[in-house]
Each structure stands twice: as structure tokens, then as C-alpha cells.
């Protein structure tokens, strides 16, 4: 069974289970968990470029994964690509420089790597009612709508006001770290 089918099954069975439950909040949690699980399964760690979860369709990636996302009849929703502003990731870019197909589920030898887990956080608000800051870096994901809107967005991070377009007018990026640390401050054992 390939990775894509496994994922579909996993999501499907989760949905089936949650459908039996009566409390809406419970359902919401389950769906959020499953969408998060799908996202995590495609990445080596939170922040890694996802592997391509579908077969090679013989067209250019940007045909469907454009700036807004495309509903492809018979196939599903192709989310927008999140990094159209990144330097070097322009319209002449090579998506498959970072995103690869999985042609097998096998491993060469086992690997015990466990990457940092995704952990959605809320941004800080200066006052009650102030717009939250962005809780993550914008590097490689400047196009907010790619992840925060549309049918492919994780349910727990969907924006309620996608129509406002210019997200950065109200939400600022603070998750910037210094590029370099002074020497000998690392937590080396």
C-alpha cells in the first residue's frame, strides 16, 4: 500500500469514528487531529518541505498549485503554493528541487530520527481584541492563504476572514531568531 492510500484510509477511518459522536466539539477536535496528522505524515519534521502526496500527473506543478489553489475535477483540491515570494522560488523555479515523489514505502535501513513536532500556537495579542502576531516564521511561506484558507487548510488554523486579503496589514511576524549565536553557548553535552 502506498503512502497516499494509507493516509486516505487513516483519514477516512477517523472521520467514520467521529461521525458516530454526537458532540460537535468532539468532532471538531477529531477532524483537527486528523488534518494535522495528514500534514505531519508528509513531513520529516515541522518545517520540512512535504513529499508530494499524489502520483506524477505529467503537468507542471504550478498548473494547479498556483497562488490561490485550484479545485481539480475528479482529483480534489490542490492547495495554493505558499512561497511564491521567496527569493529563488520564482516562476522559473523547480518545485522538485525540494518536493519529491515517494515511489516506494520501503526504507534502505531503519532510521530513528524524530523531528520537531508541529505544535500550533496562538500568536500573542497586545490587548484583548488586538490581532494576534504570527506565531511562526514566514520563511518559505509568505503566501498566508495557502495554509490558512481553502478546503486543504488544517481546520484548526483556518482564517475566518480570508476576504481581507492583506494579512500582513494586521498580523506581524515575530518568530525571527538571530542568525548567529556567540561561540560556546550551545548546549553541548
Amino acid at each position: 500500500m502506498n503512502r497516499q492510500r494509507r493516509l486516505t484510509l487513516a483519514v477516512g477511518s477517523l472521520l467514520a469514528v467521529t461521525a458516530c459522536l454526537s458532540q460537535p466539539e468532539q468532532i471538531e477536535r477529531e477532524i483537527a487531529a486528523s488534518s494535522a496528522e495528514v500534514r505531519a505524515a508528509r513531513r520529516a519534521y515541522d518545517g520540512a518541505p512535504p513529499v508530494i502526496p499524489h502520483d506524477n500527473l505529467g503537468t507542471t506543478c504550478a498548473e494547479c498549485h498556483d497562488e490561490r489553489g485550484v479545485n481539480v475535477p475528479g482529483l480534489g483540491y490542490a492547495p495554493a503554493q505558499p512561497h511564491n515570494e521567496t527569493s529563488g522560488v520564482g516562476e522559473t523555479a523547480r518545485c522538485r528541487q525540494c518536493h519529491v515523489f515517494a515511489v516506494t514505502g520501503a526504507q534502505f535501513v531503519g532510521n530513528s530520527f524524530v523531528g520537531v513536532a508541529q505544535a500550533p500556537r496562538s500568536g500573542a495579542r497586545a490587548t484583548d481584541g488586538a490581532p494576534p502576531t504570527m506565531p511562526h516564521r514566514l520563511q518559505m511561506r509568505e503566501n498566508c492563504v495557502a495554509c490558512h484558507t481553502g478546503p486543504a487548510a488544517r481546520t484548526d488554523i483556518v482564517s475566518e476572514h480570508p476576504e481581507r486579503e492583506n494579512c500582513k496589514q494586521c498580523h506581524v511576524e515575530v518568530a525571527v531568531t538571530r542568525s548567529f549565536v556567540p561561540p560556546n553557548t550551545a548546549g553541548v553535552e
Binding site: 520529516a44 513529499v51 519529491v100 515511489v103 516506494t104 520501503a106 532510521n111 530520527f113
Partner: peptide, 11 residues
Amino acid sequence: RRIPQLHQAVP
């Protein structure tokens, strides 16, 4: 080849 994503892309 010991990195699953890379091995699975070109095994």
C-alpha cells in the same frame, strides 16, 4: 539512502 524521504524518492 538512510534518509527515508530521499531513499523513497530514488530507491
